[in-house]
Design a protein around this nucleic acid. Structure first.
Length: 447
DNA sequence: TTTTGAGTTGTTCGA
DNA sequence: GTCGAACAACTCAAA
């Protein structure tokens, strides 16, 4: 039997039909496009909790995309497995003329695409990938001497100087949906077949309004208000186009636009320094972190006795998201008050965050711990009580997540702020002064 | 090559 | 209550 002759667009973190660069190129240049998504068991097998909101989010999104593709006469192919095995099966089943995808610069994704690209090339199938998730990527924004930026503000200035409005022109993929390969519908495997469960996921809103942008600078730091855009999850999975967000925000809010540029800043940091497991400033790997399992557990569960910290951790556990201001507070608390390695916090966030972006999560944790690019100086220790008084004075956020706050049932503080602050500064100072090697934990101050 | 100005989000202390 | 300095230098980026 003759194999169907098709091209494939491989969806990964670009789960939308509108303004999708790679999909647009597939539809306009190749035609007979079979859209593909792979539930990658290399990734899924490492997820401990089978009620994972991210898998649920992807599944729900695919379900919606599938409907739209089917009403355009096409079909969405959803496979489960390791990418090599899946692609081997696809090459047996189809005569593939071309494969498109959008860039993904995380270390695993780069390695995966290199392997799959080689596999396809061996059979003479062109595998072309496109820039889609950022305005600038890789080494497109460099210093005049050719090196990468490691400080945000000059990066942002250069970003803006290189920016041209036409970079935001949409790729109208949604107007060529008739060029999908016309075939009867294909099954979408259930979450159960994939090995996961339906969750309590609440899909964040997808609209970025002018009024939110107008008040963004003022409201974004108040966790009790709905003052942040909630776009992080959509940016993570590509359910919105980042070009669309820049189109909406550039003239309306410099602060918001800079947040989008921060995202690209951290992406290029990871691209140029692909060692997220190391402290960006090596001296910070000499800090004698406390291996405090009990303290870490209390932090994870929101039982530190510091209400803003506990509220944040409970928000994370309950929803998979946490307000940005509170992310800074809980990260400062873990790395400074508890002197626990930022990698522990990063790993916990990676396990829980619906909007998990490796570059931003790593960049943010290293920022909070002081070890990162352009990070907070080591002696800057957030005072969780003061942060609460400043950003949640009415306790609206705290009481929402920590209803027992103020009663006898609420946990006493895990550490006394004044002691913890002194201990953090002293311990950091000690670690940073020692550039020769690791200080043994016995040498810790204040035990 | 040297110089100069600057660097996301803070806290505490003392005048 | 307000305000500036200290915290601690250090490194980056660009002229």
């Amino acid at each position: 039997m003759k194999k169907p002759r098709i091209s494939i667009h491989w969806f990964r973190r670009d789960l939308r039909l509108e303004d999708n660069h790679g999909l647009f190129r597939a539809l306009s240049e190749h035609g007979d496009v079979l859209p593909l998504f792979i539930f990658d068991t290399n990734i899924l097998d490492r997820l401990e909790d089978k009620a994972d909101r991210r898998v649920d989010f992807i599944h729900r999104t695919l379900s919606e995309m599938r409907e739209r593709i089917q009403s355009a006469g096409g079909a969405l192919l959803v496979e489960i497995g390791a990418p090599e095995a899946v692609w081997a099966r696809l090459m047996d089943r189809f005569e593939i003329t071309a494969v498109t995808a959008n860039h993904d610069h995380e270390p695993y994704a780069l390695e995966r695409d290199t392997r799959i690209g080689a596999m396809l090339e061996e059979k003479g199938i062109p595998f072309t990938t496109y820039k889609d998730i950022s305005i600038f990527e890789r080494n497109e924004v460099l210093k005049d001497d050719g090196g990468p930026y490691t400080v945000f503000t000059p990066y942002m200035r250069k970003w803006r100087s290189l920016f041209r409005p036409e970079m935001l022109d949409p790729f109208p993929s949604e107007s060529s949906l008739s060029r999908f390969w016309r075939t009867p519908e294909l099954d979408l495997p259930t979450l159960e077949i994939i090995g996961f469960e339906r969750t309590d996921l609440v899909v964040p809103r997808k609209t970025l309004t002018d009024s939110l942008l107008a008040d963004y600078q003022e409201n974004r730091n108040i966790p009790a208000l709905d003052g942040t855009s909630r776009m992080s999850t959509h940016l993570r999975f590509g359910t919105v186009s980042v070009r669309e967000l820049f189109r909406r925000s550039m003239a309306k809010s410099t602060t918001y636009t800079n947040e989008l540029i921060w995202r690209e800043f951290f992406m290029q940091v990871l691209w140029h320094f692909p060692h997220p497991e190391r402290a960006f400033k090596p001296a910070y790997d000499n800090i004698p972190w406390r291996a405090d399992e009990a303290g870490f557990k209390a932090w994870c569960e929101g039982r530190t006795g510091y209400p803003l910290v506990d509220a944040g951790m409970r928000e994370l556990n309950a929803t998979g998201l946490m307000h940005n201001r509170v992310r800074m507070v809980v990260a400062s608390f873990l790395t400074k008050h508890l002197l626990i390695d930022w990698r522990w916090g990063e790993a916990y966030f990676a396990q829980k965050l619906l909007d998990l972006e490796l570059s931003s999560n790593n960049g943010g944790w290293q920022w909070a711990s002081g070890s990162g690019c352009d990070a907070a100086p080591y002696f800057r220790v957030f005072n969780p009580k003061l942060q609460q008084e400043r950003f949640d004075p009415e306790l609206n956020y705290v009481k929402n997540w920590v209803p027992e706050y103020g009663s006898a049932n609420y946990a006493p503080p895990l550490v006394v702020h004044e002691m913890a602050r002194k201990r953090a500064i002293e311990t950091y100072k000690l670690g940073l002064a020692d550039r020769t090697g690791k200080i043994e934990p016995q040498q810790q101050l204040f035990n």
